[in-house]
Structure formats: C-alpha cells, structure tokens
Design a binder for these strands. Structure first.
Lengths: 347, 347
DNA sequence: CTGTTAGCGCATTCAG
DNA sequence: CTGAATGCGCTAACAG
C-alpha cells in the first residue's frame, strides 16, 4: 500500500508533467494503472477513497491523459471532423457554433477542414482526416467525388451532409432543397406581379443551383432573358455593389435577387448612391438572414434559413448514433429544415 | 519474396478497408511492415520498385494509416489546436483562413475550440485538447487563467497568442496593441478638431480595452463624460443600430466610435433613418475593415487591421518551430502587425 | 536499401 | 471493487 516513491511531493507539481503517464500516477497513488483509468473515466466503478487517492495523484503530477493512446486502445477517438467550404462567408458560422456547442457538451472535439468549394480538396481532406479515426464526419453539401463517397462509406462511421438535401445521402442529410427554394421564390415573386428580374450570385455551387432553378421557374412563366451576374465567392459588400452596377448597366429590373444578404447590402448601398428608392424603384432580395439584416433594413426582403438549427440537429443526430453504439448506418435520416420567404415589398 | 496471400486480388478493393492495417499491406506487398511505413512517409529511403509494390498494395486494400497509432509511436501528432472566442463575429475569419491554409499545406490538421470569451471555458478546452498531444497551440488574446498558462507552459510545445500584444507572452505573440490603438485613435481625432465623442462597443475584452484606452486618452485632452454604450457580443447590425439610438438619446456627438465595422454599419442605417448625413452631421468610426466595408461606404471611417497577415505569420512561426525540431521555446517572438487609421471625415 | 526488435500509453478482458 | 495480462497500429533504433 505504502509505495515508496522518490519524488518530493511538493516538487512534483513543477515536475515534467509532459512525460507523466498513467503508470506514474498509479505508482504515486499506490494503485494499479487500470484503477487510475477507471477513476478518471468511470468513477462509479471505484470506491470513493480510492478515487480520492487517484485524483490527488493526478493533481500532484499534472497528469494529462494521452488520448492518442486511449483512442488507439479503445477505437474511440471522441473526434468529429467538420469539412466546410469556408468560414469567411459567415453562412456557416451559426451552424458551426451550434454544432460545436452540442458536441463539446458531450466531450467531443472538432477537427476542422476548409475545402474552398473544391471537391478535390475535400477528397484530400477526407483521406487525411480519416487517418485520425474520427467518430463522425460532417460535411457541407451533397456533391462529392466518387472517391470521397467511397472512403466515407467504408469508414463505417456516421456521416452528416448539411446545408443541402438529396434523396441519396451517404448516411444522414440535414438541410433544405436549394432547387425548391429557387422555384418557390420565383413563383412567389411572379404572383406578386414582378415581371422584370435581375439575378446576382456568387459562384458557390449551392447559390448557383438556387439561381438556376429560380431562372428556370421564371421561364416556365414566360419570363426569359433574365440578367444573370455571377461573381467569384466570397460574397462581400463590394461584390454586391459592383454586381448591382453591372446588372443595372444592361437592364432595369424591378427586383434584384441576390445569393446572400451580404450581397444584398452591397446592392442597397449602390441603390442609395444612385438615388433609387428601395423597394419602390428597385426591390432587393437577399438570402440567409443570419445576421438578422432584415430587421435593420426594413426595405430588404430575404429568404431566411436557420443555420443554427442545422448545426443543433446535426450534433443531435451524431450523438444519438454514438450513444446507440451503432457506428454503422442503421436508419437513414433526411431532415428538411426548410426556409421562410420574408417579403418587405410593396409590389 | 513471393508471399502467398489468400485474398483474391480483384476483390480486395471491396474488402473491409476499415480494418486494414500496415501489416496487411506489408503481407500483400511482400515486404516488411516497416518498409510500408517508409514507402508512405519517407519514399526517398525506398527503392522505387519496392515503392511501387507498396503503393499497389495500398490501393488494393484501401488502407488508411492510423494516425492515432502513428502519433503514439512517434510523439508527433501533426495537429495544431486553435482556440477562438467565436467565429460568428467574422473578425477571425481571415485569420483562421490564412492560418489553416499555411498549416494544411504543411500537412498539419486543425483542432478547433470555441471559447465564447470565457477564460474558464478556454481553460477546459486547453486541458481537453492537450490530451491529443498537439504539436502546437494557437489562442486568441493574452488574458488567460493561471492554470491555462501553466498547462500550456508545461506542455513544452509552441504556443502562439494572436490578435493582441503583450510584453510577457507565454511563447510567441502576434498581433497589435489594443491600448495603443485606442490612444492613437483618440489623439488623431482630437487633432482633427473633434470634441464631442460617443463610444459604442460590444463586451469583447479586446474591444473594451480599445474603448477604455480611447476614453482615457480623451480625458488627458480634457474631454470627459464621453457617452459609453456597451452591448453584449456578438456585434450585429441590429446591435449597432440600437446602440446608436441609445447613445444619440442622451447626447449629440460629432463622431461615434464603434468597436467593429458591423456595428458601424448598423449605426449608418440608424443615421440614415434619422436623416443624419455622414460624416457631416455624424461621423462614424468602425474597426477591422475585414470586409473592406470602407470601400463600399465612402463616408465610413475605420481602423484597418490585417487579419490575414496575423494568420499567415502564425502559420509561418509554427512551421519554423516544427522544422527546427525545438519543441520548446528557444527564442521569443513578439510581432506587431500594426493597424491603419482610415479617415473619411471632412472635419 | 530493408528487416527485426521493442515499446509508445492506454483500455479491454478476464481473474481475483 | 481492483489487479494482471495482452494488444491496439505504428515507428525509433538498430542490425544487416
């Protein structure tokens, strides 16, 4: 019981904590290594007196469990990989925040990868990240390379595709249909009486799909030759302003539909500088309402999506899978988080 | 040489890739496990014929190296932990993007933690994250709990504190002095002739320090009782608008100094709705210029900081440390990235 | 250039 | 409730 250990107790605190191991702690606590492991991870299996000895030893040594070793031994990494195109566009900010809040509360950590809208880079990230043996993977969108899909499928871990919807998810999909959004928006605006449209979008794939289905639906209502301006992502105020200028140069739309609120705010600035009244002279439609822009610019219309809900649901879905012990897909999940058209127009 | 392995070559591709190990690959390639490891990580040490055999076997099996095991054996995780208050404020977006670009190019992966401006949460994150044995840690700011500093110091890995400056960094610090910024801005504006100020800030610690030193410097110029409005982070357009309204209720400043451009844009919206001309009736000062807002709103003044440079320098500093093999601090780095006052006022 | 031996730090599985 | 044996998958260090 009374192990003789040479270290001076007082000094142990300043010792080489980085080299402290479970065995060191066990020796100092006078118990077996396995008991230390239990005291740390499953305290209910350990007598409280033992528990105390262990915790004292942990504090004295500054021991930090090595999760590489733990993960290797248990085949559980407590890691979730998240692959996003960018965080610059802030479209994903709420989602990431909610997702990480949920995961962190359950003691999962997050490995982040920024793919820049490139399926190729996504593929490389997936390969690199799978090497960490994450317990789950979250990725934006549903367009991936075949290799990406195959690797993810093989990994036999929960995979969540977010911010989009598909009938053939890899595993779980949580988001909304960008095609349907484009269509419904077109129908809504046509019904309001608009006939002359303009479209301003960045080259984010999902934004393009919204825009294409929007324009396609307009065509079904005999509205053709819609001015269509595409700019490189990320969407900034300046891109919005310049894009508006470009659209207005060749046409005189009643309403300019933008791929994001940031773009729409840039359009607002351009309209103001031209003395155009919004929405009377030019109506402006954004997308996202993540910063509640529609509250600040009462003339601004937008399509609101709940990024936070997507993140929260994603965390929830993952945690359910983890808890169920089924690391493979036992049931498909396809969650439509929907969207809301917020219309401030007087048309 | 000619190992007899039972698996049908063609079918191996559809095999249980998740259970494939270095030994499986070695057997199929007809070499020793160590040779597979070399072929994968240090190809220059392997004859190209051997190299080919190994790569063929890797492809055939869909083998994905287990970095948990590799990290455990080599004491190198190729992981960098990044702790930020939030990504919602977008202040860090450019920084993170540049940082990750640099790290990814060098095959380091990023573990992200969102602390929400809480030193306590940061402390918990540091403990949890150190368990992964990251090769480096990046954290925002220089205000940490004693425990955080002690743990980080003990870890004996490069630590970079960013977006701030201090004379007593844990290890490396890259950013600028928020105190100096507040002072210089105050002197600049006083020199321009302003006498009636208003301050609108969110409760981000660094924003508060800028605001406090700004106000303190004003006092040295005999300007007292500056209206000072503090709102909860994150900074949104709406917070800016409401905050402006609050400040303008009790005073009539010539210039309203805001803790971010987002806030400033909200102020612009409020000014517009009140029919105030900017900057003639009310000048507005932002901070960041990360979205190049100053290009879009010519009346908006701001203090520009280069978030991307901070991220790029951070990646560079870390990679240098990694390359030098010195995991401990061999030389202190204190890099002032500076700031630029962009003044659009006609005062 | 390639193989062998040893062990990284921990958790699983059994005994007690 | 606690302990001992074993191995997770890989790489360092050496030997050839």
């Amino acid at each position: 019981m009374e192990e003789t250990y040479e270290r001076k107790q007082g000094d142990a605190v300043d010792g080489h904590a980085e080299s402290m191991t479970l065995i060191d702690v066990a020796r100092i606590a006078g118990v077996a290594p396995m008991t230390v492991s239990r005291a740390l991870h499953r305290p209910e299996l350990v007598r409280s007196a033992t528990q105390k000895k262990v915790l004292d030893a942990v504090r004295a040594t500054g021991y930090v469990p090595n999760m590489l070793a733990g993960g290797l031994a248990s085949s559980k990494s407590s890691l979730v990989a998240v692959l996003l195109p960018t965080i610059a566009s802030s479209v994903f900010a709420d989602t990431v925040q909610a997702l990480m809040d949920g995961l962190t509360a359950a003691r999962y950590q997050t490995l982040l990868g920024l793919t820049g809208y490139s399926a190729q880079r996504e593929e490389e990230f997936v390969e690199a990240i799978l090497g960490r043996r994450p317990d789950g993977v979250v990725l934006a969108g549903t367009d991936h390379t075949d290799v990406t899909v195959e690797r993810l499928t093989r990994a036999k871990i929960p995979v969540v595709e977010i911010w989009d919807l598909t009938d053939t998810p890899i595993d779980i999909v949580i988001g909304f249909s960008h095609e349907r959004l484009g269509e419904e928006l077109a129908r809504h605006l046509v019904k309001k009486g608009y006939r002359r449209f303009g479209v301003l979008t960045v080259d984010d794939p999902r934004a393009l799909r919204r825009a294409n289905s929007f324009i396609h639906e307009l065509q079904r209502h005999d509205i053709d030759n819609v001015p269509f301006e595409i700019r490189h992502a990320p969407a900034t105020l300046q891109v919005g302003r310049e894009g508006a200028s470009a659209v207005l140069k060749g046409s005189a739309p009643e309403i300019l539909v933008c791929s994001s609120d940031t773009l729409a705010q840039g359009v607002l600035a351009e309209a103001a500088s031209r003395g155009l009244k919004v929405p009377q002279d030019l109506a402006v439609m954004g997308f996202g309402d993540l910063n509640a822009a529609a509250h600040v610019y009462p003339a601004l219309s937008t399509v609101r999506v709940d990024g936070g809900a997507i993140g929260a649901r994603t965390a929830q879905a993952l945690l359910e899978r983890f808890a169920s012990g089924d690391r493979v897909k036992d049931y498909p999940v396809r969650l439509d988080t929907g969207f809301t058209i917020i219309d401030r127009d007087s048309a």
